[in-house]
Design a protein around this nucleic acid. Structure first.
Lengths: 141, 141
DNA sequence: TCTTAAAAGAGAATAATTCTCCTTTAGATT
DNA sequence: AATCTAAAGGAGAATTATTCTCTTTTAAGA
């Protein structure tokens, strides 16, 4: 997932958001960093080229991006938030040895689950979406 | 999921854990509280009968219970940890309106996914378990 | 009953995130 | 192009969940 600065400018302005160097850098970091970065890794990455960015700015931008559905939060069993720039429905591989979370995309799985949820109606609950958390270990861990 | 004090004592001592009034109260709270309590709701609940319990005690006990696989953590997109006393494989309903997380148990879904993962091998990854996060809203929200 | 290692209590420390308040700036308007 | 203004950024304090430290208490085996 690589976007040029120009594409990132458009992503922001298409949502009616002010295009600032900080926002460009933050969104770029989310797109570039593998394994679903935390706010902290985003800040660390950005400070290489942009050493003065304030942590509050990053958190505020992340919130704005979430509100505007430019990114998503990943659920984890830790108290550090992780972010995802991929918006299409997909699932996640969680490693018990390292803290990388990888995307898992498979159409067959989606079809399987869509059919299941179309058939089964969960009473008292209106379904919006589903994600499979796949836990295990990467071979190189 | 209701356990008597005597059953809770046994659950603890079967794991070789010291049986203390605090640990009994904490485990009892997890079993009694619906919707997967946070440490804070556990503390609040326990303090009704046991006003002097220290927060550190609760966090330490929760850690011990996790290590001994008496409880599990629930993954959320918030920085507050939530706990689950149900150990059998099951899935979760997340409501976007309230912060209750409900268990979702369905054998058909488990079979479906077990078959899928038996057939599909995720390359470079050794699967241990999977959970489906089902997001939507409860009708009464 | 005695002993002791483990657990609890109290509160300080830490760390991720949020908030406040002031300054700067993107981008619309003239 | 210059001006204006609401929105965004910066700095650092505040908040909050959680962890740590250190002392006291206690469960449970001898």
């Amino acid at each position: 997932m690589k976007y040029s600065t120009e594409e990132i400018r458009n992503i922001l302005s298409d949502k009616g958001l002010k295009v600032t160097p900080q926002r460009i850098a933050i969104l770029d970091a989310i797109y570039k960093l593998e394994g679903h970065p935390s706010a902290d890794s985003i800040i660390e990455y950005i400070r290489k080229n942009n050493p003065n960015i304030a942590t509050g700015t990053v958190y505020k931008a992340l919130d704005t991006f979430l509100e505007n559905k430019l990114i998503k939060k990943i659920t984890t069993d830790r108290d550090i938030m992780r972010y995802d720039g991929v918006l299409e429905n997909h699932h996640h591989l969680y490693c018990s040895e390292c803290d990388i979370i990888e995307n898992y995309v498979d159409e067959e799985l989606d079809t399987l689950l869509n059919e299941y949820f179309r058939k089964i109606r969960i009473k008292g609950f209106h379904l919006k979406e589903f994600t499979v958390q796949i836990r295990g270990t990467f071979d190189n861990c």
